[in-house]
Design a protein around this nucleic acid. Structure first.
Lengths: 147, 147
DNA sequence: CTTGAACCTACAGTTACTGTAGATAGTAGG
DNA sequence: CCTACTATCTACAGTAACTGTAGGTTCAAG
């Protein structure tokens, strides 16, 4: 890799959009890089490494605030690993919660589709199911509404 | 159920926030209800049924645009059920995609957590894994980045 | 009547990007 | 050098689906 890259080249190298890179700088996840005489951003390897860390954490589903915390911890090698562990466990719990929710939804959708008569809307089991409040109120999915 | 309800009572009855009800009216999913002399919204059973349909569809994960389409179809009983079926199948596909993505993430998080040494950040496998680009580039999860 | 709750509209915030407009900088080819 | 095109800049707004807040009006109970 070359010693210094413009933002577009960094975007290519990291598969992260130019606008997103600027966004991360704006919200403080990335430090402002050096600038050329023409005011173009000039990224060094450490900048790019940091961006890749961010992207990797985002890909793992960590919300930006958690990424911020992880970066802070990564910048503090003598800090306890416990905080990192906590963040990761919180995220794992969230992922498991989402999987459960989606799996239940999958089952419902499959049932609705299997019952679809292929005729007209007036006979439609999907529409009927969506409009069926007795069923709806008997389920716990309303009460368990997720974000 | 009483013949007519104010928005707050509808919100209670449907577990849908007042602001969200107003939002749905603003974006055209709900029709503007009658108004009292004091300009308060007055909801009838048909209004509430429509809101419950919307909530149910949202709970199933249908995006608002799809909910709009489903409502339109529900208002057209002689229309073909095929369109409804298509919407539901699209949503099912999306749910399956998300489950697959989350399940892969779960596995990764579990591996990272299992390797956490419980010492300091400098020995931390979570931080190391997030900063590990050789590993990162060898995986397909970067390429398969979801929204 | 008073007081507090419910309701109203208008506008902005949330999360994580993403796009657009108008202007400047950089580069390659003639 | 000139031209043309691409890349980059900042500022601001849009996206999806809500959600909150402010300031004002209406309603209901004591």
């Amino acid at each position: 890799m070359a010693q210094a890259l413009t933002i577009g080249r960094v975007a290519e190298a990291t598969q992260c959009k130019v606008q997103t890179i600027r966004y991360y700088e704006q919200i403080g996840l990335l430090r402002p890089p050096e600038r050329s005489q023409g005011n173009h951003r000039v990224y060094r390897k450490t900048d790019i490494d940091r961006l890749l860390f961010i992207r990797h954490a985002r890909d793992m589903g960590f919300p930006l605030e958690a990424v911020r915390d992880l970066l802070s911890l990564a910048d503090t090698p003598e800090a306890s690993c416990r905080a990192v562990d906590d963040i990761a466990r919180t995220q794992l719990g969230e992922v498991e919660r989402r999987i459960r929710r989606l799996t239940a939804l999958k089952g419902e959708l499959e049932r609705m589709i299997a019952q679809c008569s292929g005729g007209t809307v007036s006979d439609c089991r999907v529409i009927e199911a969506l409009g069926d409040h007795a069923h709806c109120e008997g389920d716990d999915h309303l009460a368990a509404r997720a974000g």
